[in-house]
Design a binder for these strands. Structure first.
Lengths: 336, 336
DNA sequence: GAATTTACCGAAACCGGTTTAGTAAAGGAG
DNA sequence: CTCCTTTACTAAACCGGTTTCGGTAAATTC
């Protein structure tokens, strides 16, 4: 079928090991032989068989990266960040689309084991006992992204510093003069962290905490908006004097804005609205949404860097990393 | 390191070939031996090394799938469609993020060759001579998605029937009573097909063709919107009596709506607007955009099916496939 | 009871690379 | 001239599966 390394060797009268050495850039090869080998490679259209190489070298230079939901552009951006760094280091990313299913994740890990991936970057929706066991058993370096693993698991972790980010956003809203600030809670783990920060902030500043959580499963974009919609409804019912809303994600914020629109209220005149995660389209003039930006590409890059440090033994047990966030101020929030 | 098939063999006193047969479900194995082997596998935590398997079997059951731009949710949806079908058939998808770069595509193909992928589904931004040559040389079955390859290349092709889709959309707008319908052209290959359909429709119906093409490179979402914005501006300048605009993509339509908003015109009262591709967020009440829906998952599935037919020799040279589209009627278009 | 079939399993080659250990020739030092 | 390095290369083992070819023993056929 395809030419092998021995074909190349025979063609230019050297041994297979010599060809291999040429390919791998060893220096104890005369220029002349190297040139002959390259010529033969060209002539025979030889392309080394990577599966064979993976087998004999004991690594694959393959990194598995799970994407919780391929339709959510959030994840694709931090994937892109990771990919860039890994490719610079000669690794290929093998993406796994989880579709929010924990069985898919487990079977991806099984795949990873069979394929002998050199490392994994995962973003599980939840950290089950079974997941932790599987991770233990497959003996592959792993870094967790955006979903904090149990402390005891020893899995290193990269995320944004949501707690601090929320504090900053609340400070920003306070500084605008708002004192009646509601919070729309995201019903996930990250959502709880943000809610906690929100409550802490309220306590410290001595203002009333008005956090509303709608518990509908929010694993689809339109459902997330639906949650924001209902939360806004409840906020207006329970706390009618609210002047600003901080939604835990942009999707929730958009949902809230849909409700405000239906209720005949104008943003930002009647209500300031802020979100988080910086979704692409929220900069459009209809929304012009102030948001907490998470710097997604940087997160992916950081996770990849951490993983490389582990794989290449520069670091056996790295510290968790919480990246800073920044507020993108737009027109949806104004002075009280 | 990890247990091998020979370890398992030794452990339960059989030969490696027997273990292999058990793993591959051969029938000429006594139940008792099979049970012993399974027990040993369990005990030793043996997981077959897929790289070795790929090498000895002559296939990898890996399919390469290129994603032109990971940030664009359009592609991820047809990737998901393809993935589903392929996984059902025991194939894994290896994604390649092209970031709209033709060099990346070429290097992905090189990767594909080295890794001995069993098949490829690609969506190149353009069909260069070099690309066609490379495809020839790597000897991997390939199906093209959404970018029509040159007829002579023999590469089979799956796409929506844009021509017919545009005809249907124009018919829909006509039936609403519009006769002064402008078209915002997408500056790509697909854009040309749509423009052609638009012009043909105008000719047949005897109405004036008002297609406007802004040539700024449109490979980012915000740039696409910028193009729509400027196109709308020109439409209003050149054809002030226009009552409906059909933009070749939703992004262009949104860009147009931004301009209309700034110009103080209301959609749909002053101008009906329609788009294409059914972007997720265009259903929001601010836009409520009528759009030509492309059924993305189905496209991916169809491409995967075609590829499998080629790989498994059911079909050596399949016909190109053009899938139907449908119009999603929303509030941005009304009767004249 | 001999011949043939069938069920079950093993030895060894093979896939296509890499790597180790070692060698012949050339060059340099003493 | 001998000894020691260095340079440039090779033979063969190895990675961990699969596959081919066959062999033995039991079961079946005649």
């Amino acid at each position: 079928m395809s030419a092998t390394i021995r074909d190349v060797a025979k063609f230019c009268g050297v041994s297979a090991s010599t060809v291999s050495r040429v390919l791998n850039g060893y220096t104890d090869i005369s220029e002349e032989t190297a040139a002959r080998v390259y010529a033969a490679i060209e002539k025979l259209d030889f392309v080394p068989n990577n599966t064979a190489r993976m087998l004999s070298k004991k690594n694959t230079r393959l990194i598995g990266l799970t994407i919780p939901d391929i339709k959510d552009p959030f994840f694709s951006e931090n994937a892109a960040g990771a990919e860039k760094l890994l490719q610079e280091n000669g690794y290929q990313i093998f993406y796994g689309n989880m579709e929010r299913s924990s069985e898919k994740l487990l079977s991806f890990l099984q795949q990873a084991r069979q394929m002998r991936f050199d490392g994994l970057i995962i973003t599980p929706d939840e950290w089950t006992e079974e997941l932790l066991n599987t991770l233990q058993r497959i003996h592959i370096p792993v870094v967790a992204l955006r979903r904090r693993p149990p402390q005891s698991s020893g899995v290193p972790f990269v995320d944004n510093d949501h707690y601090r980010g929320v504090m900053e956003m609340m400070t920003y809203l306070s500084d605008l003069g708002h004192t009646k600030i509601a919070h729309i809670v995201l019903p996930t783990g990250i959502g709880e962290i943000r809610r906690e920060a929100y409550r802490d902030y309220c306590r410290i500043r001595g203002i009333e905490a008005r956090d509303v959580k709608i518990d509908l499963p929010a694993n689809k974009l339109d459902q997330a908006r639906e949650n924001g919609y209902r939360a806004m409804q409840r906020i207006l019912a329970d706390y009618p004097d609210t002047t600003a809303v901080f939604a835990a994600t942009d999707q929730l914020a958009i949902g809230a804005m849909v409700y405000l629109r239906e209720a005949g209220l104008s943003v930002p005149r009647d209500m300031s609205v802020a979100g988080a995660n910086d979704m692409e389209y929220t900069s459009l003039p209809w929304f012009d949404l102030t948001t907490l930006s998470l710097n997604r590409a940087e997160m992916g890059r950081a996770a990849a860097q951490m993983l490389l440090d582990i794989i290449e033994n520069r670091q056996t047990h790295p510290e968790n990393l919480l990246l800073g966030t920044s507020i993108i101020v737009r027109g949806s929030t104004i002075k009280k």
